[in-house]
Design a protein around this nucleic acid. Structure first.
Lengths: 213, 213
DNA sequence: GCTATTTTTTGAACGCTGTTCACAAAACCC
DNA sequence: GGGTTTTGTGAACAGCGTTCAAAAAATAGC
């Protein structure tokens, strides 16, 4: 064979990602991958345990790319001497929006992948890759003048990320394409503004709220 | 035949929902439905256009139930004379958390369903059912003393919903089961508190933020 | 260089899937 | 009861993920 084993593996992943991006989850077919990669179906199963394994590997690449995009956005702001918390949070959210737009099929496929089986997945490696994102957000929050202890800051970072994630991938609510993009921007700006204002005011939060049932 | 056509349809939907709830998306099989409903495979396709149609119908039922749960939570608070915005928002979020917990397989399946194809779905009827949820949230916000015009309140309601949704269905980040539930509660309380504090302060938001990069 | 041995690649084959459709059964009409 | 329409049926088809005996290639030993 002309190509290294690892090299063919990466070619398979590139093909798989393109397939996912173009046609979503059920466009990822073993025979299509084999055909486009110039190998046989069996060889695909030689490189990966099964199609889920291929999809998982693609997802890892996506998460790495997302983390890199976030880090790059922060590095860019640092280089331009921008330390304002609001601008940094908006830049992070903007990076995520652009990432999702750049992966219109493969990112929804990643999200759908984790929701396929009802509690059987073991996202060990997923978490590690998401933790770096949380740490970026937490470090931005640490730059503000909110007096948050480490744990509160960690919670706040996760809350912010989940909220932005929820807004961006709300999925529903798409009257028109342009209106959708505008509304996402509006919601993100509201969220970030409200978060900063809310955190600025009172110091620590006393999570003693009795939730009404 | 002993049963009404509509009645068999609903039985099929109940079976389909149970299958989805037990095994996720790829547990919804035409032959299983037919067997459990005591009809033939062809009859399933007589009642619904295809399996996607079955899943869509199940999803409608779920959205109706979610809307009813939200409305019921608000009615309960009204009956108890509770008008506090914070408590109402927490009650709504709590209703959503309980709803998700009560539908561990079928709700993820609904979310995965919308992410299967990359921009081809037409969630017309979905929107209508979600709009009632947004209106509930908006009406709660209207009860607070934030001076928001209708449009800002609409945006804020959607933002709140998307954020809670993102937090609850963040999926990843599940160190342990109990720790996960606690963390969701913490995040929701932080979100609601921060939102209320943030909205209380300044009046209208001037979405003139220049996003970096 | 040649054979023996190991490793890798192959694609036909298997079981399962969604979906169809000619046919049968039931229901309806008068 | 006979003709017509509607409804139900399940064998059949194409496509899927996955496997695995066999073929091909690579490696080792000499």
């Amino acid at each position: 064979m002309a190509l290294d084993k690892e090299e063919t593996g990466e070619r398979v992943l590139a093909i798989a990602e393109a397939l996912l991006n173009a046609g979503g989850m059920d466009n990822l077919k073993a025979r299509t991958i084999a055909e486009q990669a110039g190998i046989s179906v069996g060889s695909v199963y030689n490189l990966f345990s099964d199609l889920d394994g291929v999809h998982r590997a693609v997802n890892m690449r996506l998460l790495d790319r997302l983390g890199a995009a976030g880090a790059a956005a922060m590095a860019d702001l640092s280089q331009r001497g921008i330390t304002d918390v609001r601008q940094r949070l908006l830049a992070l959210a903007g990076a995520y929006v652009r990432f999702v737009e750049a992966h219109p099929g493969s990112w929804p496929a990643l999200l759908a992948f984790n929701r396929r089986r009802p509690t059987l997945t073991e996202p060990d490696a997923y978490e590690a890759r998401l933790d770096q994102l949380f740490e970026i957000i937490a470090s931005v929050l640490a730059g503000g003048d909110f007096d948050l202890d480490d744990d509160s800051r960690r919670i706040a970072a996760r809350t912010l990320w989940s909220s932005v994630h929820g807004i961006v991938t709300s999925g529903y609510a798409a009257r028109s394409v342009r209106r959708q993009a505008d509304e996402i921007d509006e919601q993100i700006e509201l969220l970030v503004a409200v978060f900063i204002r809310g955190l600025e005011r009172g110091g620590t939060f006393a999570h003693a709220g009795t939730r009404a049932s």
